[in-house]
Amino acid sequence: MLLSIKNLHASINGKEILKGVNLEVNNGEIHAIMGPNGTGKSTLASVIAGRDVFETTSGEILYKGKNLQKLSIEERACEGIFLGFQYPVEIPGVSMTNFMRTAVNEIRKYKGLDALSGSEFIKLMEEKKKLVEITSNLTNRSVNEGFSGGEKKKNEIFQMAMLEPMLAILDETDSGLDIDALRIVANGVNKLRRPDNAFVVITHYQRLLDYIVPDFVHVLYEGKIVKSGGKELALELEDRGYDWIKKELGE
């Protein structure tokens, strides 16, 4: 098993957001997490990535059998955890090339591999750009600075392609995208899918799941996964909303 989350409780500034999440992800699987706004989807992603503004109060996250809580943000990344940000950060003055070259080589160093040379790196970058259909010249642009909403999301997929994670968590990567950009993002995921890696796709909309077919769909509500099913659950949610689930829960 790649990821195993057991009874995870997490809070920010004393306010509990996750109230006992259980989730298991195996290699080769795609999981979709859906649910109304403010129920803890992004918090779950951040806690897995190790963001320190959240405090894990109880429960555990096992990743490749290791307790994740003992690892720093960058160690988790080097172990293969990737977070596609809902709001990618603009970093003026840091070029995409420097950023990616530093990231690729620090991860390689962690794995005991030699750093890529300048030409090897450029070759890799061109290859991955093609894969995710980025045509613009990223080399001299600062990270996400002046990027349109769609470009920022494509840039997240590009970074994922560069870093080849084992577990990619995409936090509403589809929100704010037109249908073409959505297709490019989804194609990126499908091309990067391998038998040994896994994806957790957080989304509000069924439409992304027309392009990325999930093995499992989970509903996160009030800090817990309250319902899980196959891809047909997403269609049902699209059709009926969340009220029926709230009713099932007795609210």
Binding site: R51, I73, A103, I107
Partner: peptide, 15 residues
């Protein structure tokens, strides 16, 4: 910027 720090570190870059 703590947001930028988190972003960079999430990509495997040391603190």
């Amino acid at each position: 910027d703590p947001e930028a720090m988190f972003y960079l570190r999430q990509r495997g870059i040391s603190e």
